[in-house]
């Protein structure tokens, strides 16, 4: 993520932020893409409760709320390899649940 904009050490909330990645697939050369993704700090908490499991958690993450699909053409693809690569671009980001249907949810 690009860290040049504003004071991100103090930022609270969930916002669209520039992100650079290498679009790559077998049979083609990679291409560096700069796009909009999501980054931030969402309110999360854990509190002790009287009954098992004794801890209640409210955990949400900064993720895509609205996206646009962008298709690009990768360079130098081998014959017979589809050169097109589609990735999501963030239009709006929000704190919410990590949807395991569309998202690889990784936590530390």
């Amino acid at each position: 993520f690009n860290t040049s904009k504003g004071d991100l050490r103090k930022f609270v909330g969930c916002a669209v932020r520039e992100f650079t990645f290498l679009a790559k697939k077998p049979g083609c050369k990679g291409l560096r893409i700069t796009t909009d993704a999501c980054w931030g700090r969402c309110e999360t908490w854990e509190k002790p409760i009287l009954d098992p499991p004794y801890i209640e958690a409210h955990h949400q993450v900064c993720t895509y709320n609205e996206t646009k699909q962008v298709t690009i053409k990768l360079p130098s693809c081998a014959p017979g390899v589809d050169p097109f690569y589609t990735y999501p671009m963030a239009i709006r980001c929000d704190c919410g649940a990590c949807s395991t249907a569309t998202t690889e949810c990784e936590t530390v």
Binding site: K24, R41, E46, P48, C62, T63, E104
Partner: peptide, 19 residues
Amino acid sequence: AQACVGYCESSAFPSRHSV
């Protein structure tokens, strides 16, 4: 009692091809 409340970092971005 004490609970824990706060703002921790999270991000979302396009997945790698392998993922």
